[in-house]
């Protein structure tokens, strides 16, 4: 698979504090990556290093095949870091024009990208007059100007109201649907879960996991069950070899699997034993549960 960003043994120290420690991972084309971690876990520092604004202490990284300089590679990258930064005295269109000049791309994309983020009618208004949501959307338009190979978003919904968060998510989904590689740093797990296929989990600058979202912990998921004959059901599950443990909460029985078992087979077995369910759901742990499990284990 074609790699876009390769990071090897990257370390960053701020004085005595180690913000990123010996971090290695690879971003491949076509996937949507999430960088997960609590505040201060080194997400923004890592992005800052690969985006040429923070100096690394040790290790190395390279963009694409490693034959381009970082600043030339960045012309093929779209990135938004924390707050949208533009010139307040310039209009939206003028700001985008400046970005086009920096990235060496034609100016005819500006209108199209403003349309995508819904700012076309405000293109001649000064950036200083925009609300935070609009500023963030302009930042996305700016990141899209060069039709980037990869879009990097650092906390894109931070500080936005629910409507703004929704708008940004919709835009990200649209972009992802076009096959653009996306790297999304966030501490909002549910945001990452909704869009990402792969995750890198960081804590205190150390990588805990990197890989597919659904392989984050070795688990076969669990069943959520309801039944009128609760005691019989519980006794059946106790004896069943596929289950590890059971817990009951408000008449909802949660049974955790230790080996694969399809809901179809399980339901059939129960029916044959005269137990009829009123509620059957097979689920995997949510990203939040997996994340907490992962960070607790270490």
């Amino acid at each position: 698979m074609e790699s876009i960003l390769t990071i090897r043994n990257l370390t960053k120290k701020f004085g005595s504090l180690t913000a990123v420690k010996d971090l290695s991972f690879t971003i491949n084309k076509g996937n949507i990556y999430g960088i997960l971690g609590p505040n201060g876990s080194g997400k923004s520092t890592t992005l800052g290093i690969v985006l040429n604004v923070v100096n690394k202490t040790a290790g190395n990284f390279h963009w694409f095949d490693g034959n381009t300089t970082t600043h030339d590679a960045l012309k093929k990258v779209g990135a938004i870091i924390e707050r949208p930064n533009f010139y307040p005295y310039m209009t939206a269109a003028q700001n985008l024009k400046l970005v086009c000049k920096i990235k060496n791309v034609a100016l005819n994309n500006i209108e199209e990208k403003l349309e995508i983020v819904g700012l076309l009618d405000r293109k001649n208004h000064k950036f200083g007059t925009f609300s935070l949501g609009m500023k963030q959307r302009l930042a996305i338009a700016s990141a899209l100007l060069n039709d980037p190979e990869i879009l990097i978003l650092d906390e894109p919904t931070n500080g936005l109201d629910p409507q703004g968060i929704h708008q940004i998510r919709e835009i990200i989904k649209q972009i992802a649907a076009k096959g653009t590689t996306i790297l999304l740093a966030s501490h909002l797990l549910d945001e990452v879960e909704k869009v990402c296929t792969h995750v890198v989990v960081l804590r205190k600058g150390i990588k805990l996991y990197s890989g597919r979202v659904d392989e984050m912990i070795s688990s076969h998921g669990f069943f959520e069950l309801k039944c009128n004959k609760e005691a019989e059901l519980l006794a059946f599950i106790e004896k069943h070899p596929a289950f590890a443990n059971v817990k009951t909460e408000n008449a909802l029985i949660t049974a955790f699997l230790k080996e694969p078992l399809s809901s179809e087979n399980f339901n059939k077995q129960l029916f044959e034993n005269g137990i009829i369910l009123t509620h059957l759901v097979q689920r995997k742990e949510s990203l939040e549960e997996q994340f907490l499990q992962l960070t607790d284990n270490q």
Binding site: N52, D72, L74, K75, K103, S142
Partner: peptide
Amino acid sequence: KQNLIDGLSK
């Protein structure tokens, strides 16, 4: 910061 991220070298 944004200029550098957009691909201008220092």
